[in-house]
């Protein structure tokens, strides 16, 4: 059974560290990336099913990641997690093709719900919240 490929980008190492286990339990192949520049390379090399990205990161913004992911594959679902959520940012993200946006701080379960929803929409039927 093919697992949905998931990329999580946040310059805060703890975010990936804490979320990785939970997301893998859902049945995703999770890749964690703290450097958005490297994340851009990864996205160009490989089509991820789901990309979760922070917005405010040094040098490269989450919006650039979003654009890159959507350029690489329109099928990619991009979930934005941000510590600076505003209506304007939400609209910008949606306009650029984000799948969803969630404000920091969030509960791990909230994000997992979104991932499950996205994965199911993409046809990964055996993904579900444990």
């Amino acid at each position: 059974m093919k697992k949905p490929e998931l990329l999580l980008i946040d310059d805060e190492p703890m975010v990936g560290q804490r979320l990785k286990g939970g997301l893998e339990k859902l049945g995703c192949a999770v890749e964690i990336c703290e450097d958005p520049a490297r994340a851009l390379d990864l996205i160009r090399k490989k089509n991820f099913d789901i990309v979760i990205t922070d917005v405010m990161m040094p040098e490269i913004s989450g919006m650039q990641v979003l654009e890159a992911a959507r350029t690489a594959s329109t099928q990619t679902r991009v979930i934005i997690i941000t510590g600076f959520a505003t209506a304007n940012l939400a609209r910008e993200a949606m306009e650029k093709g984000a799948y969803d946006m969630i404000a920091k701080p969030f509960k791990p379960a909230d994000l997992r719900k979104l991932v499950v929803k996205a994965a199911v929409e993409m046809g990964y039927s055996d993904i579900k919240e444990y």
Binding site: E12, M14, V15, R18, L19, I81, G83, F84, A103, K104, P105, F106, K107, P108
Partner: peptide
């Protein structure tokens, strides 16, 4: 929000 998020997640 970053440390708060870390606390929340942890």
């Amino acid at each position: 929000n970053n440390p708060l998020n870390n606390i929340m997640l942890t």
